[in-house]
């Protein structure tokens, strides 16, 4: 929005919402919404505490491991599906099912199969993120210019070289787009996993604070989590824009 010839930055309205939050909090309208200033004070108080650091590391570990598997499995599978028609026709129906299926329903299965610990949470995270990565990688590989493939073949590229030197890079913009959405979904997956499987990490903090009516603690952790999630998604969006310059250039 432009006010008096000056363009307000994109997310600046969050300040107004923050102010509104503060006012609502100050009036004591509802117990569930403490003033934002109080939340921030709490935030700085708890951010170095062992409980918070533990929650953060537990969550980060599960998240990073889950995302690692989603990417490390998702991209190659996507490339193979983009290259091989048979594989594509066999796998695509399943990928399409899982990309939009209510994956929360699978979490109980993971619990009984893999126990109530880290393993199940990591798998949940991977399950949330992987399908869109596969789909986008596949789409990216399928749009690769035929002459690029023929070029690499004419120069005698090995199958492995073709994958790592041509397909991956030519499909990179789509792959990154998929990774961005996949990672956003993985963030949701890790929290859902922590809430459903075992009450650990941030999930445990939320439960603890909510059941003890520590509202400003609850909101403080929520703000940290949302800010982290948002930063990750913006950072990946930035990377995606960085490579999209050549997406526009290739034909």
């Amino acid at each position: 929005m432009v006010i008096m010839g000056y363009k307000l930055p994109n997310m600046s309205s969050l300040l107004i919402w923050g102010l509104l939050w503060e006012i609502i909090g100050q009036t004591g309208l509802t117990f569930f919404v403490p003033p934002l200033s109080e939340v921030f004070v709490t935030l700085f108080k708890i951010i170095g505490t062992p409980a918070f650091v533990k929650a953060l590391t537990e969550t980060a570990q599960a998240f990073l491991a889950g995302v690692f598997f989603a990417i490390a499995i998702g991209i190659p599978v996507g490339i193979f599906m983009g290259r091989s028609r048979l594989l594509d026709e066999l796998l695509l129906p399943w990928v399409n099912i899982f990309v939009s299926a209510p994956l929360t329903a699978l979490v109980p299965v993971l619990m009984v199969l893999f126990g109530f610990g880290m393993k199940s949470i990591i798998i949940t995270t991977t399950l949330f993120g992987i399908w869109i990565i596969i789909l986008n990688t596949r789409a990216g590989v399928r749009q690769i210019n035929r002459s690029l493939i023929e070029m690499s073949r004419s120069f005698g590229a090995s199958q492995f070289d073709a994958f790592t030197k041509v397909y991956f890079w030519a499909a990179l913009p789509e792959i990154l787009g998929g990774v961005r959405i996949g990672v956003i979904r993985a963030v949701k997956g890790v929290i859902i996993g922590q809430l459903l499987i075992s009450i650990v990490g941030f999930g445990a903090l939320f439960e603890l604070y909510a059941s003890n009516f520590l509202m400003s603690h609850f909101w403080a952790v929520l703000i940290v989590l949302f800010a982290l999630a948002f930063s990750i998604s913006e950072f990946l969006g930035y990377l995606e824009r960085r490579v999209s310059y050549y997406a526009a250039n290739r034909s």
Partner: peptide
């Protein structure tokens, strides 16, 4: 309204809202 409301929904879209369930 774009300036005012979009950021809220953009953050909601990126955030793990499941965390709100206890609340």
């Amino acid at each position: 309204f774009d300036w005012l409301f979009s950021p809220i929904f953009i953050v909601m879209q990126a955030a793990p809202l499941a965390a709100l369930i206890p609340l």
